[in-house]
Simulated assay, not measured.
Amino acid sequence: MQEVAHPLGASLWRGAKGHCPACGKGRLFWKYLKVNDRCECCEEDLSRYPADDGPAYTTILLTGHLIIVPLLFIPWVWRNPVHSVPLVMGGLVVSTLSVLPRIKGAWIGLMYALAVKSTDAHLHTADAAD
């Protein structure tokens, strides 16, 4: 089992709050989902931690299971007129888009804690198994 290079809980929490997973002070994002290249406080290279599709898949999985599926059990949702669908869908979109940066931040915190860098991608290809 791989040993954690940095404290896992603190790194996840700092990332989820949108802060640098190393120091917890600098901002992680400079736009909605654009990660800063470096932390302005501790100079940690934040661009080297991969957060490709994992945060999006995790967000869809969580919002689907925690919000959409329970809504299907509420009779109001499926008995209401069709014109209420945009209201429900709008709420789902807003909730998904508000959760996505937090999950991406926590994902980057996880990559930081496990010391996984984008340069490690060669370890996970078919050529590495040979």
Rank of each mutant, 00 (worst) to 15 (best):
V116H: 04
P7C: 12
G90W: 03
L97V: 14
A128N: 09
Y57I: 12
A51T: 11
L12N: 07
L110K: 05
F29S: 06
Q2N: 12
S47E: 06
E44W: 00
V77E: 01
P81V: 13
E44R: 00
K117D: 05
V93L: 15
L114S: 08
L110I: 09
A115F: 04
L46I: 01
W13A: 14
V88K: 09
V69C: 09
T96P: 00
S98C: 15
S118Q: 11
S84G: 03
S11Q: 05
I108Q: 02
A16S: 14
L72C: 08
S95W: 05
E40F: 03
A106V: 09
H19R: 15
W30R: 13
D120F: 05
A121Y: 08
P86L: 10
P81L: 12
L92A: 12
H19F: 13
P70G: 09
L110N: 03
C39V: 02
P70Y: 11
P86D: 11
V94R: 06
V116A: 01
P70Q: 12
S47T: 02
W107R: 00
M89A: 15
R27Y: 01
R79D: 12
A106M: 15
C42L: 06
H65W: 10
V35G: 03
V88S: 07
V82L: 15
G24R: 03
R27V: 01
M1L: 09
V82A: 14
G18L: 10
H6I: 02
D120A: 08
P86G: 11
C41S: 10
L46R: 00
C20N: 08
P50E: 02
L71F: 12
G105D: 02
A16P: 05
L114D: 04
P75A: 15
S95D: 08
A115H: 11
A22Y: 02
P70S: 10
Y32G: 09
D45S: 01
L61N: 03
D120Y: 06
R27A: 11
G18K: 06
V35H: 00
L87R: 11
K31E: 10
T59G: 03
K117Y: 06
L66I: 13
S84F: 14
H65Y: 06
S118T: 10
S47A: 14
K31W: 05
A5L: 05
C39S: 03
T58H: 01
V4W: 10
T119H: 00
G105S: 08
G9H: 07
L33F: 08
G9T: 12
T96L: 15
T96R: 06
G91C: 15
S118F: 00
S84V: 14
I67Y: 08
A128D: 03
G90A: 13
